[in-house]
């Protein structure tokens, strides 16, 4: 019933926006229609794609020799530079927020956790694809270790990089829901193609959330926070690019 209302609502609003082609009012209408379209797309994907359906995986021979590094490729923030200068020996991943036992783990400690390796494709919102091999720990393992509180609904990734490379610039962040956080292919990767994760690809730790577009795969992760809502973070849309108009659920 609710879904039918959504569909008719989206169609009605869309048609209304087409009929009145110009003017401020119709622009606002069409904006609403596009938002409804986005909601419809997200719901359809959640409905059609089983929680644990796996992203396709590839063979070693299919790995891209020219995997593109996009967005930040060498963060300028001083805290990041200091850690990098030291080979990330002083790095600690913080996992806190709505958890019973907040974690603070060095890379060496992270590497003692059970690791998994997967060769997957990375689909950029711009349209290109690169294939890479990723090794890391399942996010679910760390979430269970910390013990999510029942009110936790989203996992937020706070990153070191600011795209404008300014010290006080807006730092990158991303968020996913618990379905994707607990997905068997969602990992925090420290190795790429069998080697330590290089700086352009997010050293020392990046997210792989294989059923979504590239901008969801947060690089240079500083802190992971379990939250009930991300309305108070950044501009409230759940991520750096989401705050700039991109879809929060980036499955297409």
């Amino acid at each position: 019933m609710n879904r039918r209302r959504w569909l008719t609502g989206a169609l009605a609003t869309a048609m209304a926006s087409v009929v009145s082609a110009c003017g401020e009012a119709s622009w606002r209408l069409s904006e609403q229609a596009r938002r409804m379209g986005e909601g419809l797309t997200r719901r359809a994907q959640r409905l059609l794609i089983p929680r644990d359906a796996l992203a396709p995986t590839y063979s070693r021979a299919e790995i891209s020799p020219d995997f593109r590094a996009n967005g930040s490729i060498d963060p300028a923030a001083s805290d990041y530079r200091a850690l990098k200068a030291d080979g990330f020996a002083g790095y600690r991943l913080v996992l806190d927020g709505l958890v019973e036992r907040p974690l603070s783990l060095s890379l060496a400690e992270l590497r003692t956790r059970p690791a998994q390796t997967q060769i997957t494709k990375h689909d950029c919102v711009e349209g290109w694809t690169s294939i890479g091999e990723w090794t890391g720990v399942r996010l679910e393992t760390l979430l269970d270790e910390a013990g999510l509180k029942p009110e936790a609904r989203y996992i937020v990734f706070h990153c070191f990089d600011a795209l404008d490379q300014r010290e006080d610039g807006e730092r990158y962040y991303e968020s996913i829901d618990l379905i994707d956080a607990r997905h068997p292919q969602t990992i925090l990767a420290w190795d790429m193609n069998g080697e330590t994760l290089p700086v352009p690809h997010g050293a020392p730790l990046r997210l792989r959330v294989e059923r979504q577009l590239g901008y969801k795969h947060a690089k240079y992760i500083r802190r992971i926070e379990a939250v009930e809502s991300f309305a108070h973070i950044g501009r409230g849309k759940g991520g750096y690019w989401e705050d700039r108009g991109y879809e929060w659920y980036a499955g297409i």
Binding site: L11, R34, W241, Y246, E247
Partner: peptide, 16 residues
């Protein structure tokens, strides 16, 4: 050029 907005138009009208 506006990738974010173009995608919203594209998917809305893909449904239609």
């Amino acid at each position: 050029r506006n990738l974010a907005e173009a995608r919203k138009w594209h998917f809305l009208f893909a449904w239609i």
